[in-house]
Design a protein around this nucleic acid. Structure first.
Lengths: 129, 129
DNA sequence: CTTGACCTTCCCCTGCACTGGAAGGTCCAG
DNA sequence: CTGGACCTTCCAGTGCAGGGGAAGGTCAAG
């Protein structure tokens, strides 16, 4: 199948597929005599895997590592488990950070609402910050 | 005060200060006869304000808008309140998204742990994704 | 007079995952 | 034989907030 068909089937764009190839996420495609890329339909599964990895918050570089391991014939499962564990830790940290930020902003917003002066004091830029 | 002193006092770098000036967050500084920037010590408060805005998750473009309003003599408080409200909404969305992501990853991770085959099935890249 | 710290402008680089567009080749229907 | 859809490569830009480093000017101390 040609790149446009693959892009549509796998819900992506031709630009992205060429980009993935340049980044080593897809192996260099076969070529027709005219130089067109000619893909094996199995490539769709590989792109779906990339999409699932992205949905889990992995970077393309991490996904490429996983695919490299798989392409060398080894099972990348343990590596993926470690990546997911690291993602979980990072996500927990992000959530904690955002929660604290939300509480800070809420406080700023509500704390400043009470006195309600017509304008800020001249030596201050804004009573909310 | 010169740029190095201001940078140290305001806990930033000379690079950043020149960048802020180029982005309109700081007014063009006075110059000494030799061409050195010569800052009013009040500038420290302005940089602190920028830092507080960043800590609240505002972009430099948004902070610049606030400072522009203030510099035109008007109180930016209402505008800042709106920005903070929008940030709160965005943060809530981010938290919800990250929480769902965390739950998905947790499930992937624990669900795949049980059968524990030695390797992934040949038509699958990894049992975790 | 020189050394070293500080300052100036200038342009390019970073990470991330693409996206846009130019210039040109290929293929098929009408 | 022409038009349009599709494909190729390559270069450059996006957003965000700066950072790196070159080439050169300035100033005070020794």
């Amino acid at each position: 199948m040609r790149i446009g068909e693959l892009a549509e089937t796998a819900a992506t764009t031709t630009k992205t597929l060429r980009f993935y190839e340049s980044q080593g996420l897809l192996p260099p495609a076969e070529r027709t005599p005219a130089g067109y890329r000619d893909y094996n339909p199995d490539t769709v599964a590989r792109i779906d895997f990339i999409h699932r990895g992205q949905a889990a918050g992995l970077t393309l570089a991490q996904i490429r590592q996983v695919l490299d391991i798989r392409d060398r014939g080894r099972a990348p499962c343990d590596h993926v488990r470690d990546l997911l564990d690291a993602r979980l830790v990072a996500i927990e940290r992000q959530i904690a950070h955002l929660t604290a930020l939300r509480d800070n902003i809420s406080e700023l917003r509500d704390h400043a609402a009470e006195p309600e002066p017509a304008t800020c004091s001249p030596d201050q830029i804004c009573r909310y910050l």
